[in-house]
Nucleic acid binder design. Sequence first.
DNA 1: CGCCGACTTGACACCAATCAAGATAAGTGG
DNA 2: CCACTTATCTTGATTGGTGTCAAGTCGGCG
Lengths: 264, 264
Amino acid sequence: MNLITPKSGANVDIGTHGCNRAGKPSLEIRARPLLGVNIESAGTQNLLSSEEQDRLLHDATLLTYRRGGNTLFTEGQTANFLFVVDQGIIRINRYAENGRRQILAFRVAGDLFGLPENGQYVDSAETVGPAKIYRIPWHRMQLAMLAEPQIQLHLFIKVVDDFRQAEHRIMILGQQNTCQRLASFILDLRRIPEFFDEERSLLKLPVNRFDLADYLGAVPKSSERAFARLESQSLLRRVTARTIEILDISGLQRLQHERWRDHR
Amino acid sequence: MNLITPKSGANVDIGTHGCNRAGKPSLEIRARPLLGVNIESAGTQNLLSSEEQDRLLHDATLLTYRRGGNTLFTEGQTANFLFVVDQGIIRINRYAENGRRQILAFRVAGDLFGLPENGQYVDSAETVGPAKIYRIPWHRMQLAMLAEPQIQLHLFIKVVDDFRQAEHRIMILGQQNTCQRLASFILDLRRIPEFFDEERSLLKLPVNRFDLADYLGAVPKSSERAFARLESQSLLRRVTARTIEILDISGLQRLQHERWRDHR
DNA sequence: CGCCGACTTGACACCAATCAAGATAAGTGG
DNA sequence: CCACTTATCTTGATTGGTGTCAAGTCGGCG
């Protein structure tokens, strides 16, 4: 998920020169760029000119979903479209051969998804809540990519960014226990204004316990225990099932980086 | 690692049309393509014309390492080069803040590595054994990418492929126990002729126990236990420390996909 | 032949998955 | 506004997997 973006997507540079204006790699949540560009207000430095942007969005359809549970595509379908999130949150699933689901990533505003493999999607994408999604035909996209290297380059940068996110997940799944994974997740969510009320330090969880567990690579019971433990350590407080109050951010960060996979 | 390539790199297609000649996604190890092209013998369908290939390799340096333990680059260094493996095996490391190492991937012939982020490498790369590596200056690469969309497209495809590998690791680390992870690793290694003697069913492990553990996201003791268990189930036999005899491939595949994270 | 590094294993404590059942909140109709 | 239904969240007890620490064994190389 881009929640775990090591750095802002717009700041990726594929070479040693260019627009590496951001500085240190930090756990930043990217804002809402469409291929590096904010759609409504071209706020920060544009990676695509507005003409290029218009040309891309010209062939795009804006899909609006009022609630969660809608399937945008499933594994094995012919991949006709590339998707870009405008609003809301999307989960990218894959099922193991034994039927167990893994949520590979959550996608939020500015993220793209729907990369095909041999012309087919290799995972499924579903809305988690209300969402607005841009849908761009792949054949248009391919033409644009070949015709305009700049556009391709920005798509390239996005994919490199997703690759980094995946590597970050590997780090987390490879060496953190459920508590630490939950802490990482919470700290990531904290960076999204849509979910975090900084005033009251209240975080609204956008996903249910099953999604959370499948994202953390655990069983619902374990993620529940992780909540209980973080609460017992006064790092957070469960207000309602879907709302938590973050009590100790630095404590969460400390836990996240502790050597051992749980130490009590 | 590309050992866990869901499919051959050369078969990736970014759209719904094009060269999707391979068919079903299968756990194939890609051969030895340089950006989708075999260097010596242009065997299967070339993705790059030989001129394009020559142009790329014109600026490349061939680095030759006689033994393992050489560092090609480390985290934080300015990223001046893109690397492509010709022979041997490279490990891509990243260290968590607590100092624990995670091996994100192993790279073998045909794989590329050294993608920068803000102009810097975000992980380190070291030779595991003797290796030959092509080193291409990034500024040349960037010029070529902008000047020739075809070249950029093939680099793009490679990165998408690496992204899929990373997702596959997420699946494994998210829902398999150490035994299953080891089985997956062994089954992947089996596809590389350099390490697997199909006649005698002997597999030569290219990495030591520490590397293996850091790759599996475990401690050496656990990976050792995993070996012991696979041996007790007659799935393999430890001949020497670095050589195993594979006894039951389908048994390993069955174990790999078992529902529970270990069932005995 | 003997040293050294790498692999291998034992005992202990802890974390995580299973199963099933109870508690809480949200949505619905009277 | 209240009772009901339903979905979701939450919790004990048991079994087995995994990290820690330290000690033992094997193989290769001089």
